[in-house]
Design a protein around this nucleic acid. Structure first.
Lengths: 120, 120
DNA sequence: TTTTCATATGAACGATTATTCATATGTTTA
DNA sequence: TAAACATATGAATAATCGTTCATATGAAAA
């Protein structure tokens, strides 16, 4: 039983080639962070459900909570996250605040996700 | 200072209309769950970085770890998650196991995300 | 100008998750 | 077959996150 001490696979030439390619094509640290933060927003079924409601209409917080069977507070917290990430926008009308989609990408991203999970 | 006790906004007719629309258009509970699970996978910068490497080539675990400056163990754990969600596939060749993209949707979803964050 | 209504938000709690460490599995080579 | 190599995985820990509760803000109505 000897000590294990090695670096990596054998073909060291291929490594350099790969490392160079990765360095060239990999987005900046900040873009990678922003990208994962964006997808994190889609990674919660409550927020997905909110988006599906907003696909149909501009809706106030109160109605969103009723439509989803959730607390006003919980919905409000999630709307804040959606807004921070520019996926929804809001508009005040009297006492109510109406939310709607901010962007066409939202629908495209969700549709691609649906396509993926529908494949068997 | 009285007790607060009310249901929702006033226009009860609009509510019914909205609730009916939501019931019709909202995907099944299971689809919503699967969808959020899928996006959760994209919601981590380590996994995003792995995917960007795999955009360029079929790579073994060892090289992935080297290219990303990460532990073999950490990479392996994340590859398992990517594979469970059918975003990557693997192939054994001798002692090494090579990973590659499983699907064209992966690139589309990431590109849409990039487009979104690049807008201002 | 109080009261009511609609929404936002801070703190707290429980649940989930990414990494690390140690070790197991499986393949090749000596 | 025993040692080395490549990868996988279970347990533990720290960090992140969604919901709830209580309360704050801000607008409208009485």
């Amino acid at each position: 039983m000897k000590k294990i001490e090695y670096e990596c696979c054998e073909a060291t030439e291929v490594h350099e080639e790969l490392l160079a390619l990765v360095r060239e094509k990999m987005p900046e640290e900040e873009a990678l962070y922003d990208l994962s933060e964006l997808f994190k927003v889609f990674g919660d079924s409550t927020r997905i459900r909110i988006l599906f409601v907003l696909f149909e209409a501009e809706v106030c917080v109160c109605d969103l909570a009723a439509a989803l069977g959730m607390t006003q507070s919980a919905v409000s917290h999630q709307l804040r996250i959606l807004k921070q990430n520019k996926l929804v926008k809001s508009r005040r009308e009297g006492k109510s605040i109406f939310y709607s989609l901010a962007d066409g990408h939202v629908r495209t991203i969700i549709d691609q996700g649906l396509e993926h999970i529908e494949e068997e």
